[in-house]
Write a protein that binds this DNA or RNA. Structure first.
Lengths: 348, 348
DNA sequence: GTGAAAGCGCTAACAC
DNA sequence: GTGTTAGCGCTTTCAC
């Protein structure tokens, strides 16, 4: 069906290896032969079969990436950042959307392994480390972004300092006069969720503010959990009056904001809001939402750099039994964008 | 390095084919043998090599998709819609971001072809149809979304009726009292850009409104072109007074809005705005932007359906020399979400 | 400078 | 029920 080396070789009465040499630009080919082969190659628009090449060379040049939701600006930007570097280096990014689903994530991990990706970038939503064994046992580099796994061995990761991110947001609220600050946290079995809550608690304590369990709600990062948590907080508002809320993800912030609006509360007069990873491309959201931002493109490009290094080390070590450099976690600094939503506390 | 059929077979003193039969769940295997093989397979965590399978079976189960920008909600949603159906049917979506760049698009088309994707979904930004020839000549199904190619032969496509989309938006502005309506159009060498301008012109005419060349600006869909066009329009506002503008893409709308804000104009009092594909997940943008919306998930799922059908037909036709059904363009209906930005004309 | 041959890991037709 | 064999398209070693 497709043209292949054999059909080209036969037509020219040369061997497959000669055609292969021409295709791969090797130099031990007679210039006249090369010209004849090249001509036919062009005429038939020959394109080498990468599947066969991959099998022979035991290398696919494919890197897999699995993220929970591609429609989130956070992940889309990371992918863009990684894709650029990877493409420049002759790799090919295969992207999968786990839809925040553990089963789907596992499924994709298996599929990508079957396809023999050379490395994996993983924003995991799973506590189950079993699917990872495949990769680890076969020495396939894995780089974690966003969430960290519950692994006993060391691993590579690129992410922000999540505790510091929370500290930044909470400290800002405090310096705006807020003391009763609620939090909508994420799942505590995920490191991101855990660290962000942790940063919140530590910052309150170091400012001499008591941590009130009633002001801590746990969502699951999905769209409606922010809404639900915010509703619960507001319903208890009388018992445990609070003037600000810190919401630890974009989707939950969206939900929380609509709950606040539904309850007829004004931001920031009735309730100040600080968010995490909130994206406002338009800059027209009113009130502007104060938010923690991550250097997403950089997370992507550093992840790509790390992968490329690991892959190089791997090739090298086979030949020279060189020691692989230690696994590392690259911690980037979060930023804080201050807008109106976190405005100073309303004094009654 | 990896476990393969051979190593498993050797250890059990059976043949490779027996192991293969067990792996593929064929029934002509002695139950006792099967058990022994299965045990070792599990012990070693054997995962079949899809690269080898693909080569042997001449089928990769991979579908490629190339879009101009994954960070646009429009494309992200389409991918989600397609991914779901494709995954359910045992296919695997490989996704590429051309970054609105013709060269990159071509590059990815070649790469995907080399990888032997079985079909391609293409939101093209290119006028050059040459890279397409590879696919067409080799009978690999291609489905176009968003933009249509300049091909002489017929092709498959799934998209909205873009002329109608513009008609919807412009008619709405007219019924709100606007008569002097500017447009920020897209590249006229792309069908989407052409059709949307076309719908604008026809709607004005059918309403007995004169089309004024000075009110037509051409952007390139990139972030800053909307800003530039809007600036130009506003600078000429005195000459050619207009009360509304229709911006034909999300990114250009973002640019136009910041130009409007910069010029200190109020929406909709000084200038009404209608957009295309504008996404506001938060619902908090003020003023709310009236926009054309597309059934993105449906575009994705219908595209996936079409591809699956084409692939089935292909398999079938080899065996039965069945006639392939005619290529088709599936035109979906655009929607209009009315918010404040398109408010009635301000009467002086 | 060129060709023959082996083999990457797998499947499937065929023989026993 | 099981094994042998050929071959998918390619690269590469080894002869010549």
């Amino acid at each position: 069906m497709f043209f292949n080396l054999k059909s080209i070789a036969k037509e020219l009465n040369v061997s497959v290896s000669t055609v292969s040499r021409v295709v791969n630009n090797k130099d031990n080919v007679n210039e006249e032969t090369r010209a004849r082969v090249l001509e036919l190659l062009n005429k038939y628009n020959y394109v080498p079969n990468e599947v066969a090449r991959s099998l022979k060379n035991q290398t696919t040049n494919m890197i897999g990436i699995i993220v929970p939701d591609i429609t989130e600006g956070f992940f889309a930007q990371i992918i863009k950042g990684a894709d650029q570097i990877l493409t420049e280096n002759g790799y090919f990014l295969i992207f999968c959307d786990s839809n925040e689903c553990e089963i789907k994530e596992k499924h994709y991990m298996e599929l990508l392994f079957q396809k023999r990706v050379e490395a994996l970038v993983l924003a995991t939503v799973s506590k189950n480390t079993k699917p990872l064994r495949m990769y680890i046992d076969n020495d396939i580099p894995v780089v974690f972004i966003d969430n960290l796994p519950n692994l006993s061995e060391s691993y590579d990761a690129v992410l922000i300092n999540n505790a510091k991110a929370s500290a930044l947001a909470v400290q800002h609220l405090i310096s705006n006069g807020h003391e009763r600050i609620a939090i909508i946290a994420g799942s505590q079995s995920e490191t991101t969720g855990y660290e962000r809550l942790n940063g919140y608690i530590r910052t309150l304590k170091s400012n001499g503010i008591e941590v009130d369990e009633k002001l801590i709600k746990y969502g699951n990062y999905k769209d409606d959990s922010g809404y639900r948590c915010m509703k619960e907080l507001i319903q208890n508002k009388r018992d445990c009056d609070f003037t600000a809320v810190y919401v630890t993800s974009e989707k939950m912030t969206l939900g929380a904001l609509s709950a606040i609006r539904e309850e007829g509360l004004c931001i920031p007069e009735d309730l100040a809001v600080a968010a995490c990873d909130f994206h406002d491309k338009s800059g027209l959201i009113v009130p502007g939402i104060t938010t923690i931002v991550q250097p997403e493109r950089e997370i992507g490009s550093l992840t790509a750099d790390l992968i490329i290094r690991r892959l190089k080390e791997k090739k090298f070590s086979v030949k020279e039994t060189e020691q692989e450099t230690a696994k590392q976690t690259i911690l980037l600094e979060p930023g804080l964008i201050i807008k109106e939503s976190s405005g100073t506390v309303y004094k009654r």
